[in-house]
Amino acid sequence: MALFARTPIAPLEYSRTLWMRLWVGLVMLFLYAPLFVLMIFSFNDSKRNVVWRGFTTKYYEKALGNDQLVEALVNSLTIAALATIVSLMLGAVAAVMLWRFRFPLKGAVDGTISLPIIVPEICMGVAFLIFFAKWLEWPTDLIWPFNLGAIIIAHITFCFPFVTMVVRSRLASFNREQEEAAKDLSAGEWAVFRDVLIPHMKPALVAGALLSFTLSLDDFVITYFTSGPDTITFPVKVYSMVRFSVTPEVNAASTLLIILTVVLTAVALKLQGVKAIAETH
């Protein structure tokens, strides 16, 4: 303990006691060690994944040369980008509706919008399977990117409630006098929305975008059920690879995706600062 403490530890400085530091350190190790091992072994020159046999980047070449894997990654990124854009619009609009208006059945509407957060993924996956494949008989042989339509719709449905949640809590701190001032200065509804409300919502929109992009990129179960036989996304492809064999190629592809997540987080941080991102959760 004396190792770290230069000033005496005050009673409430729990995080400076040795036990707490040890605990947090172990939890961080637990959370990060598997990911670091995975990333390190993507550079390992051995097929069996366990013994270090020297540095190589050949599995990256292999992963990037694997057409199916690249296609799956491009699909996933396209789906995530489109789903995020629509989720942001839909989520923000829904948040404004719930924040600004009083209307009949508001409680029911509010509850229904947040239902996709609660309903288990497997149940939603099953629902989209029946809805698209059996009920709408959604064509599966459209050209790219229209063949991703069903998946994108499914992703928007479970992403936008999160955006609504984040934006709504941000709107609670909005000073409505600003809106009135803008209206006094003869701004119309749309101008108020664009120039007053959106700037206020911006931190929540950045957090919401990050949230829906990662949720969409992350989703396996719903996509697994919604996708037709010919459309693969990254998680679905990795799933089938993990299912049948564990290869360093999966490590390489995973490492790329982890790096992408970290970069996205860094961009969001750059835009909003650590505190704002941390506090929206």
């Binding site: 947090v24 961080m28 959370l31 990060y32 060690a33 598997p34 990911l35 091992v37 995975l38 072994f41 994944n49 990050l210 990662t214 990129l217 992350d218 396996f220 990254f234 998680p235 990795v238 799933y239 993990v242 564990v246 999966v250 490590n251 995973s254 995706l257 982890i258 997540t261 970290v262 996205l264 987080t265 941080l269 650590v274 505190k275 991102i277 941390a278 959760h281």
Partner: peptide, 26 residues
């Protein structure tokens, strides 16, 4: 504080399948 929070949230943003696979390797 923000960095510790970020430390907890970053795995949450990382792909579930990748995390499961990492654990399987271990």
């Amino acid at each position: 504080r923000p960095w510790l929070l970020l430390g907890i949230m970053l795995p949450f943003w990382t792909n579930l399948l990748i995390r499961t696979y990492a654990l399987m390797m271990l």
